[in-house]
Amino acid sequence: MSESNLGGKRAGAGRKPNYNEATKVVRIPESRVIEIKDYLKTPKKGNEIDDIRQFNPVTKLEIPMVIERVQAGFPSPAQDYIDKKLDLNEFLIHNENATFIVRANSLSMLNAGIDINDALVVDRSLEAQHRDIVIACIDNEFTVKRLIVDVKGCWLKAENEGYDDIHPVDGQDFEIWGVVTNVIKKFR
């Protein structure tokens, strides 16, 4: 038998480490592979969206919900009556497979109540409609804006006078990535 040069370890062969740490296998839908690879390759440079994570409601936490509503004006007598328990997963998430949490990274939507570091709950399964707050991808950069649909087409409105609206032009990559359904804001 002749000796083969095939097989075995070869210098420079195999996958090259991109990071100096252990890696982890992640299962994603086949239809999303290219999109996710493109996102991972996109250089991060002060985009308005920071830290996109898929929502994974693995725990169930029920929080007591008081039956009485709180007055924003003149206070009313308090009632110590708990109506039921509220699960935040059920309250915030309608389609867990298409829901992501995204952190805002600018003040362009300040007048809509979205501040820097607010967590935006984004549902990709919803079809965006006029006046929805959406996550859009424009030339491979994410932004959060209000979708305006008019006779000329659709454009993105900033909810802060210090920021420009975005009117996509021909040849520009423009995609509505998802609809913002909730904002999670910390006060303390």
Rank of each mutant, 00 (worst) to 15 (best):
N20C: 11
E21T: 12
A22W: 06
T23Q: 11
T23H: 14
V25K: 02
R27T: 07
I28Q: 06
I28W: 06
P29Q: 11
R32G: 00
R32E: 12
V33R: 15
V33Y: 11
I34G: 04
I34V: 13
I36M: 07
Y39R: 09
L40R: 12
K45G: 09
G46N: 13
N47Y: 04
E48S: 09
D51N: 10
I52A: 01
R53G: 07
Q54W: 06
F55R: 02
N56R: 05
N56H: 10
P57I: 01
K60T: 07
P64W: 00
P64K: 02
I67V: 15
E68R: 13
V70A: 14
Q71W: 00
Q71N: 15
A72H: 02
A72P: 09
P75C: 02
A78T: 09
I82K: 09
I82D: 13
K85Q: 09
K85F: 14
L86W: 00
D87S: 13
L92Q: 01
I93V: 10
H94L: 06
T99K: 01
T99F: 04
T99L: 07
F100E: 06
V102N: 01
V102G: 02
R103K: 09
R103E: 11
A104Q: 12
N105I: 00
S106M: 01
S106D: 12
L107I: 05
S108V: 00
M109V: 09
I114T: 03
D115P: 00
I116W: 04
D118S: 05
L120W: 08
L120S: 03
V121W: 05
V121T: 07
V122E: 02
D123P: 01
D123T: 02
R124K: 14
S125Q: 04
E127T: 14
E127W: 03
H130K: 08
R131P: 04
D132N: 15
D132G: 10
V134S: 08
I138Y: 10
D139G: 06
N140Y: 08
N140Q: 13
E141A: 10
K145N: 03
